[in-house]
Design a protein around this nucleic acid. Sequence first.
DNA 1: TAGATTGTTAATCGATTAACAATC
DNA 2: TAGATTGTTAATCGATTAACAATC
Lengths: 208, 208
Amino acid sequence: MDVPQPTINRLPRYLFCLEQFTGDSSTISSSELARLADETAATVRKDLSYLGSHGTRGIGYDVNTLRSQIRGKLGLDQSRDIVIVGAGHLGSALATYEGFDEGDLRVVGIYDISPAVIGTRVGDMTVRHVDVMQSDLASRRCLLGIVAVPTGSAQDAADRLVAAGVCGILSFAPTLLRVPRSVFVRHIDLATELNSLSYYVNARRNAL
Amino acid sequence: MDVPQPTINRLPRYLFCLEQFTGDSSTISSSELARLADETAATVRKDLSYLGSHGTRGIGYDVNTLRSQIRGKLGLDQSRDIVIVGAGHLGSALATYEGFDEGDLRVVGIYDISPAVIGTRVGDMTVRHVDVMQSDLASRRCLLGIVAVPTGSAQDAADRLVAAGVCGILSFAPTLLRVPRSVFVRHIDLATELNSLSYYVNARRNAL
DNA sequence: TAGATTGTTAATCGATTAACAATC
DNA sequence: TAGATTGTTAATCGATTAACAATC
């Protein structure tokens, strides 16, 4: 890996800040971006230098150029198709998530196993049975899959996604998924997120 | 901060793995936990040494003891009350999230502004109007709040949570929230998570 | 005892930061 | 030119890791 891991992890946050950024000018200085992203100016400059260093001395970085450079480095210039397994509240929330609109992420299908929801509409899609997922997706390459089912069904959902040819899975189920080494799994555990928040709240209160 | 930041960030993952762990024995070695958590055995031992080092040489760590030590260090032994603003799909999913059951996180209220959902049941709660949130919560101390509303309402939701006395906020809205310095904000941007997943999938495929 | 595994030291490795020449 | 800000070096800082004595 050419670019250091910490830099890669910060780039999405810089991008997020740049998308929020609505300054008077079309440029932003390393110190201003640092303030928004809660980093130091030196760290920002070092990180951005991995993109090829296209700032202007005395001026700063062009916001639009910087945005597309970060997007390019993160591979966001190529659009990504996403399938969701689980059409409950969480799956429905993800399927209609407004944040995807700006990016090149596109939800192309939502699947469930329950007759009660199959055939219902979620956003502009119709929920289909997981049994037809593999054939639905036969022609698509390297999709991302989202596991939004109860814990007990999570491994089955992951197995089906793998069979359907996804190469990355984002799981919200609080359980470890077993997948082939070629499939990358990312895990969001909401309880862990809240636990972590709770810890930092305590630490901050003790520090103040 | 006594315990290093990287250690703090890994503890929730260790805890997660220990909760999944169902070995023959009631003990786990540093190398086994390392395998589950995708770390090295030395890192695990160093991290656990910050808890007070209660492993047994030649044997390993008692799983139950270790779990409660980590929970203690993260402050999870004290239960936490959570309020949710936004009773759409995301808010409903969070309100009924099964992962909270095991821990000491408890959702005590869910609020919305839309007459269409106010009064409806979510799990074992009734959705109430955000206008009554502050008085509802007057007697509770240091709650955690979750922002699960559309981007346009996120700042208003945060303001109301702050007024109601929360000391930490977990936001799912893809926008920066302005809050007093005394309130800690944690941010989950689903688009960023998927972008990040996408990057690592690419990196992995290029490496294989 | 012999085997296993911890707890901890010291060495290595890598990331952050200060500082400043380059230059817009 | 004077002021501002980058790009990059070198120093500092901190985290990871190897290694091994301690000991169950």
